[in-house]
Simulated scan of single mutants.
Amino acid sequence: QMLKQGSGAIVNMASANGVVAFPTFPLYTASKSAVIGLTKAAALQYAKAGIRINVVAPAVIETDMFEAATGGQDEVKAYMAGLHPIGRIGTPLEVANAILFLSSDMASFITGETLMVDGGYVAQ
């Protein structure tokens, strides 16, 4: 449909761990890095067709995966929050807002990019 109409926006999901690695998660890091690379290649392939393709890469977000990883332990949650320069864990709404932005006409000149939603995690 996007090819037929000559426009569209695709937003893939990766992770901050697709940009920086944790030594205990090599397969996770590899898979998220692959999403970022695929996004760049697809963005180049479809740019002239009017289709923008980007990726959102969150760091730690308050999700079921986060709860499982922390075991619900407050000290583990505090440690993980401290990994982010902003000093807290991100929310699903913050990730959704990034996706909405990249899907909107406000991002009409953005393609092949990785938008970090990471509270400064990768910047350090």
Rank of each mutant, 00 (worst) to 15 (best):
T29P: 03
A30C: 02
A30I: 02
A30F: 04
S31C: 05
K32N: 10
A34Y: 02
A34K: 00
A34G: 07
V35H: 06
I36E: 12
G37E: 02
G37M: 02
T39F: 10
T39N: 07
K40D: 08
A42N: 01
A43F: 08
L44W: 01
Q45L: 13
Y46F: 14
Y46S: 03
A49P: 04
I51S: 06
R52N: 14
I53V: 14
I53H: 06
N54T: 05
N54Y: 05
V56K: 00
P58S: 12
A59M: 10
A59Y: 10
V60S: 13
V60K: 03
T63F: 04
T63E: 03
D64M: 12
D64Y: 06
M65G: 06
M65S: 08
F66M: 15
E67A: 15
E67K: 15
E67P: 06
E67Q: 11
A68M: 13
A68T: 12
A68Q: 13
A69Y: 09
A69Q: 13
T70M: 12
T70P: 04
G72Y: 11
D74G: 06
D74T: 14
D74S: 15
E75L: 09
E75N: 12
A78L: 12
Y79M: 15
M80A: 09
A81H: 00
A81T: 01
G82M: 03
G82E: 03
L83F: 09
P85A: 11
P85S: 12
G87N: 09
G87V: 01
G90E: 11
G90W: 07
T91L: 07
T91V: 07
L93N: 12
V95I: 06
V95A: 01
A96N: 11
A96R: 09
A96P: 07
A96G: 13
N97Y: 04
I99T: 03
I99W: 00
F101Q: 09
F101R: 10
S103H: 05
M106A: 15
A107H: 10
A107G: 14
